[in-house]
């Protein structure tokens, strides 16, 4: 059984399993995460980290077990791709997602995030002209735009330079108190101090 805080529960998984055909990705997983919990998922390539995160985000269905997740409106998910439109600008991307999440005072919120992730200066440039690291920063802006209570990040430090990684450290530190966070990474030392629960997949 993983996870400590049962009050203010965000994720509850019982006997959770996922298979692709005959291949078992993970099985009999028990997990309870509440606000303030930080689950660090590690494991080699192909161990099922991404699949687990997609299941916990509600994007893939588990093959067995019970899974209780919060409302979609409160989940922030960053996959291997930053999930932003390359032919749109950062402002256009964030305005689109702000509309979908019905965020109030959206221009102010978007401005604050773009400033914070050092993208304000390129707010009107197409994302296709950005480096991978800049796209990742924009992906992080999208993820935290609606102030999620469940943050699921798959290799979030990928492509980030040291300044970007430091910004992400600070953001995770801020969300750690009020949200449940699930991070899969090959660089566990980076978030070891924040982790309250660890899961090693094989």
């Amino acid at each position: 059984m993983l996870g400590r805080r049962f009050s203010r529960r965000v994720i509850s998984a019982t006997n959770l399993g996922k298979r692709f055909g005959a291949k078992r990705i993970f099985d009999r997983l028990e997990l309870r995460l509440g606000r303030g919990d930080f689950l660090l998922v590690t494991g080699p390539n192909g161990s099922g980290k991404t699949t687990l995160l997609r299941v916990l985000a509600g994007l893939d269905a588990p093959s067995r077990g019970e899974l209780s997740l919060p409302d979609r409106a409160t989940i922030g998910y960053l996959g291997h791709e930053p999930l932003v439109y390359r032919e749109l600008t950062p402002l256009e991307n964030l305005r689109l997602f702000a509309s979908l999440y019905a965020i109030g005072e959206r221009e102010q919120r978007i401005g604050v995030l773009l400033e914070r992730f050092d993208l304000w200066r390129v707010r009107d440039e197409r994302v296709s002209t950005f480096s991978r690291g800049m796209r990742q920063r924009l992906g992080l802006c999208r993820v935290v735009l609606h102030d999620p209570k469940l943050l699921i990040l798959d290799e979030p430090f990928n492509a980030l330079d040291e300044a970007g990684a430091t910004l992400l450290d600070a953001t995770l530190g801020e969300f750690a108190a009020s949200s449940a966070i699930v991070v899969a990474t090959h660089d566990p030392e980076r978030v070891e101090a924040l982790a309250t629960t660890r899961m090693a997949l094989r």
Binding site: A57, I75, Y77, E81, L83, V84, Y85, F97, Y101
Partner: peptide, 17 residues
């Protein structure tokens, strides 16, 4: 095509609309 190539359907499906 944009949603498929950049995995964006995931981001749209997660939106609460």
């Amino acid at each position: 095509v944009p949603e498929r190539e950049q995995g964006l359907l995931d981001a749209l499906l997660l939106a609460p609309c």
